[in-house]
Design a protein around this nucleic acid. Structure first.
Lengths: 131, 131
DNA sequence: AGCATGCTTTACGTTAACGTAAACTTCCCC
DNA sequence: GGGGAAGTTTACGTTAACGTAAAGCATGCT
C-alpha cells in the first residue's frame, strides 16, 4: 500500500514549532530530502523522524554537522570493514560525550537544589525580619 | 591570610584548554571580573570556578547568556521577595530542561547501542561472505 | 474574476562566539 | 642592552544557524 501519511512543510513547522525557513535550511545542509510533487515538498514519516532527531540533537547542544553524523550512523550505508570500524569508533566517542553530559547534568541538578534551598531560606528570613 | 592561590590568564588557558582570547571574551561578556596587577589580569580560585561553570555549560549546549544566569543564581544577590520568586521560577525551568536532556540522552544511548550492534553484525557478515 | 493562503526560489542581513592579526608594554635572562 | 616570552588593547574577520524580505506560482473560495 502507498497509504503512508505525508506532511507539508507548514504542518511540520507547526508540529515541531520551527519555521519553514528552518526546515528548508536543514534540507540545504543535506539533512532532509523530501519528495516533490511539482515544486512542493512532500515529507514522509521518515523525514519527520529525521527532523525529530535533529531537534533532539539541538536540545543536547549538537551542531547540525554532529546531528548529520548521528543520522547517517543510523542508515547502515553498505560498508566495508574500515568504514564499519570507523563507525564503531565514532559511536564510542559519542557515548563518552553523553556520559560526560550525564555527569555534568547531575552536578548541575545538585547545584540547583542548593540554590533553591538557599533562596527559600532567604525568603523565610525576609518574613522574619519583616515581623 | 592572603595566601590564596592565583592564576595568570595563560595558566587558566592551558588548564582548561581554551585560548586566552576566549577568556578575555568571557570577561567582555561580564562573566569574569579578575583583579588587576597593573594591566595584568589576576585570577582567583573563584574566577577559576566560574570559568569551569561556563565550560560545563558549553558542554550542555548552553549559551553564554544562559551560563551567566546560572552563575548569578549562585550568587545570592541581596534580594527582595519578587526577585527570589523569579529566581525560584528560573530554577524550576532549568530543572525541567535538564530532565528533558536526560531523557534525550537516554534515548540516544539506546540508539547508539542499536547502531553498534548492527555495525558489528555487518562486520560478521562481511567475514562470512568473504570465506 | 479577484483575492487570500500557502507554497516556491533568491538573496541579503543578523547574532553568538570566538579567531586572527597588529602594535605595544613588561619582565626576565645572558 | 638586546632578545624572547607572556601579557595588554584595538579591531577587523569568520562560521553556524537561521531571520527577513521580495517576487512569483498554484489552488480554492466567494
Amino acid at each position: 500500500m502507498d497509504t503512508q501519511k505525508t506532511y507539508t512543510i507548514g504542518e511540520l513547522a507547526r508540529d515541531f514549532d520551527v519555521t519553514t525557513r528552518t526546515i528548508r535550511f536543514y534540507e540545504d545542509q543535506g539533512l532532509l530530502s523530501p519528495r516533490r510533487r511539482g515544486q512542493t515538498r512532500i515529507y514522509s514519516p521518515a523525514d519527520r523522524t529525521t527532523l525529530k532527531l535533529i531537534l533532539r540533537g539541538k536540545r543536547l547542544g549538537f551542531s547540525l554537522a554532529e546531528s548529520r553524523e548521528l543520522i547517517f550512523m543510523y542508515r547502515p550505508a553498505r560498508d566495508n570493514r574500515e568504514q564499519l570500524e570507523a563507525l564503531i569508533g565514532k559511536i564510542t566517542e559519542k557515548r563518552a560525550q553523553l556520559e560526560q553530559q550525564l555527569t555534568d547534568i547531575r552536578i548541575l541538578q545538585g547545584e540547583l537544589d542548593d540554590a533553591e534551598a538557599r533562596a527559600r531560606q532567604a525568603m523565610e528570613n525576609l518574613e522574619n525580619d519583616h515581623v
